[in-house]
Nucleic acid binder design. Structure first.
Lengths: 199, 199, 199, 199
DNA sequence: AATGAATGAGGTTTCATTCAT
DNA sequence: GATGAATGAAACCTCATTCAT
């Protein structure tokens, strides 16, 4: 019973995520979400009081999925750099396993997305930022050295995102393997751009 | 005469940019844009055939402003690193001098913004990416060393953007001076995160 | 179920016919049609995608009503002249039983009505012209004698229409009974204006 | 001076007639009429206070043109039948010499045209109906024999109109010469459809 | 519980008309 | 006198939401 309700709720959210990701909030259509979910329009409203609530539930799922995914990285018994790699790979994997949610995440994380900013912001308060944690941890352990660890974490996040083609207007390194991307990024983080001349 | 028309056109675009940046395309209201521009609703339609056209004209202005701003950097007679600095400062300055346009730029540059993707994409084909050019130039001159110069340019861009508080859901280094941010970034680019332990 | 939908569709069309007949297409108002139908504005759009489509559906109904009405005349076992009479009476009767549809019919049949000419023309391709058929039949049987039977049919049609007061700017024979009108017309068709002098 | 003003007024009316005939009142556009007249939009309003007034002036011109055209027929020293012929030819000639005005005339004369019915009706009060006059005269002289001379005039009018292809949804006798049409009509008026069998 | 027919607020767009130049 | 830029009322249409079945 309860499971079935919960399952249907998830189905709706998944379809909604596809719509919201593809068309944005305003151009997404409750009717179409219902049809594509294989249920009646009125039924949507048994699960979500309003379109806005459905949107927020979808964004909550974004947060949950990301937290779920990054949950165990911090406790891995590996070097901070290894953790960074694992974390990057996790993010890259989202492109295949949950693109709509990835798009919604990025739209909020990096864009001044105007859809219910306050409410979404409140949800994202709970979003773990593993890159930040790793860098902070690394700094504590003496592995990394930066005056702004938290910010460094966000910078890494933004760089990884940059290399996810589906999220970019101009796709970058489309045909490069994830391993190479990770290597590229790690190298960059380790050595900067190697400005010998200035050193 | 003609100047006056062009001036009014610019006024409308500026107000529109504010609206689009704040509320997004769909929730922006031609009526309100007219009122805030101090002109009649119908007048908007003398300058722009449709709301969509106004939006695209606004996005074209975004491209123009950014190109205008970065035009002369590449030809400066300074080291690539200095150029990077100048370029970063330019970007930071947008926050004060043209925030709505900066927001619209970022919304397209980093978000999968679904509003007229194809048309906006076509406009952004003409957008210069000075960071990319500088890195490429630096690689040629031997100052920088990276297998993916273009991509490195975009990564720098995304990092600078990360440090512009107005563009971030969670503002970073809000009270840090631009000079320090530039220094932070340049240092990062030069030395990575100084992972001595791994070296 | 289905019947109820169909019934409501017919109701809308009837109200719409009244509006279109009275005010013309452009000055008819979906809102008002809705109100007069006792339903909401949006409901109209459940039955007809656009105002134009409602108009065309109304014109289709015109064709259907006229065809329905004239269906059985041709097969009557009476002389062509008798058929003409029956047919005239049918037309006269429309004034009382479906004036709006009669007006819309005449507006298209005799006026260069500019509302969606091509589309309406396509609909009227299916409109039976019983007067034409009767004259053709009569010519074949030797009852009538005219070089242009089809055209003669249309001429009769136009004459009958002329004697329907509701369709004329200057009402003719307003207080004359239909029987007398029919007699007048039949006499004219049989004998013309009896120009003895010229004979 | 005055002549020039009057001339320009006529030009506007002619262009307006074309627009009104082609698109109907509501879909005709003052701006377009101005442009096609080669004058400014505001200038139209120096000649006609409103669009409606321009329309009514155009319809007044219709009446004037028709009256002008039929003025001298009644006084011709020929038989009523000959007068009918001349009158028919006059009407046929309108198709080539003033089609827009002919269309506007027919739209009002035979259709329940809803554009300013009362006002247009008032104008048409002054419209001569030569066919009616001729028949009445013919009846007086004993040439014609009909209980409803006025109505017979209108019937003839409607028949002639039927044979003007530009006025009909389904053009009739498109490739038949006017002379033959006149002959056809005159014969019909004289002898009807020659129902020998019934005689 | 599930449905989808019905609703009407709200926003874009057109165009007759005005008026400052 | 002539102009056309500016205006805003009005109408079509969409779609989130409700509710009777």
């Amino acid at each position: 019973m309860k499971n079935e309700k919960e399952l249907r709720r998830q189905t709706i959210i998944e379809i909604a995520a596809r719509e919201f990701a593809e068309k944005g909030y305003d151009n997404s259509n409750i009717n179409e979400i219902a049809t594509m979910s294989g249920i009646g329009k009125g039924t949507i409203y048994l699960y979500f009081k309003t379109k806005k609530e459905l949107y927020l539930a979808t964004m909550q799922t974004v947060v949950d999925l990301f937290n779920e995914s990054s949950k165990n990285v911090l406790n891995l018994e590996v070097t901070p750099l290894e953790k960074l790699k694992v974390c990057m790979e996790l993010l890259f994997r989202f492109e295949e396993e949950g693109l709509p949610f990835l798009i919604l995440w990025s739209r909020y994380q990096f864009q001044n997305n105007p859809d219910f900013q306050d409410e979404v912001h409140a949800l994202f308060k709970d979003l773990e930022q593993p890159f930040c944690n790793i860098v902070k941890q690394g700094v504590k352990e003496g592995t990394f050295n930066t005056p702004y660890p938290e910010e460094a974490g966000y910078l890494i996040l933004s760089m990884v995102t940059m290399l996810i083609p589906s999220l970019q207007a101009k796709p970058l390194l489309e045909n490069v393997s994830k391993e190479e991307k990770v290597e590229f990024l790690v190298n960059l983080i380790q050595n900067g751009l190697s400005c010998k001349a200035i050193n």
